[in-house]
Amino acid sequence: MGETIRIVINNEIDIVVARQKGRELSKAVHFGIVDQSRITTAISELARNIYLYASHGEIRLSIKEENRKKGLEIIAEDKGPGIDDIRKALEDGYTTSNGLGAGLPGVKRLMDTFSIESVPGEGTKITALKWTK
């Protein structure tokens, strides 16, 4: 426990690496198949946002434990342009890249906890966590 897996995001293949690590880790913690899919998809969304909007950054995955419950925490951090209007970025369908605008609001629904810190011009840090049942 306590260990953190760090995946540097520089290109499209790193997105695949991040979600594969997420899949392995969520299996190891005995998440069910649906939660494995939720976690893997959330990682993919956050890693792609880093690649798309900040070019570089990292995903950190770690196992948390509280009241004998285990959880998987995803931290996505970059020193990119930051998000001007976080409220807007969390709206379904809001996109600046001709995407579906499903990533951030989707991750929020897929995970149990979700928070964004972002400073325009400095970067973005998103933390999301899923607990086992």
Binding site: V34, Q36, S37, R38, G106, R109
Partner: peptide, 14 residues
């Protein structure tokens, strides 16, 4: 489409 994928897609809003 696997059930787990279908559930995830709906939660993504797709």
């Amino acid at each position: 489409i696997q059930p787990s994928v279908a559930i995830t897609l709906i939660e993504l809003g797709i």
